[in-house]
Design a protein around this nucleic acid. Sequence first.
DNA 1: ATCACACGGG
Length: 275
Amino acid sequence: MAAAPTIPVPLTNFITVNNHRYFANHPTIQLIDHCSNADHLKQIHAQMLRAGLFFDPFSASKLIHSSVFTEFSSLHYAHKVFDQIPHPNLYSWNVLIRAYASSPQPINCISMFIRLLHEGREKPNKFTYPFVIKASAKLADLQLGKGIHGMVIKEGFSSDLFVSNCLIHLYAECRCLDMSARVFSSMPQRDVVSWNSMINGLAQNDCVDEALEFFRRMEREGVNPNDVTMVGVLSACGKKLDLKFGRWLHSYIEKNGITLSLILGIMDAITVQQA
DNA sequence: ATCACACGGG
């Protein structure tokens, strides 16, 4: 197999992202954003190989991003591109880890994460963990989740709002609601997603009264519920067959101007019907 | 330059 030619590129202009300086002025790299089909993307890929641009981690990450996020490309292709990058930066790792987390094979997200731990020049950051936790949640793998949680604590991300919200959801998916509650109560600050994750987790695990209790607590603490909150609360209410409370929720939704998305409308109708 | 939460019955 012939080695890719590595013609040095005159890299004179920089852009600054996250306090790092990158070369991003190469005409081939600028083409990436205007690429309109898979063949075009492959041509850019070929030009990058000829120009040695894969040795610039920022340029390589641009191609990875395009390979993953354009609808004419596939995750398989993106992974092959990734494997050709000599020194992928953390952004490139995260792009692939993220794509696998929302793919039908979340286990590949975990494999990439383990590769990152072994091969990466940078440690996982606050963006990496939410993707990996999401994959563990989809796998409903409690052992794996606990392991990742341990790393989160060790690496100092346990007070990150996004990471904690993911952990609440993860433990709920593993039917481990006492752990969800433990994460929730340890948070230095919470937002509506933290409450939603608790309420929906409880409702899905048939802990109806607890879900409604969290909703009341949320109200007391002055956090404004949104449409996702109401899906969980209505679901709990439907399981409880409580018509009176269902009707109260109905007027509550209208009174508080909560967006009546299609799902919420259907949920609402079902709750009233069931009771 | 990236991150989190949702529905029930056909």
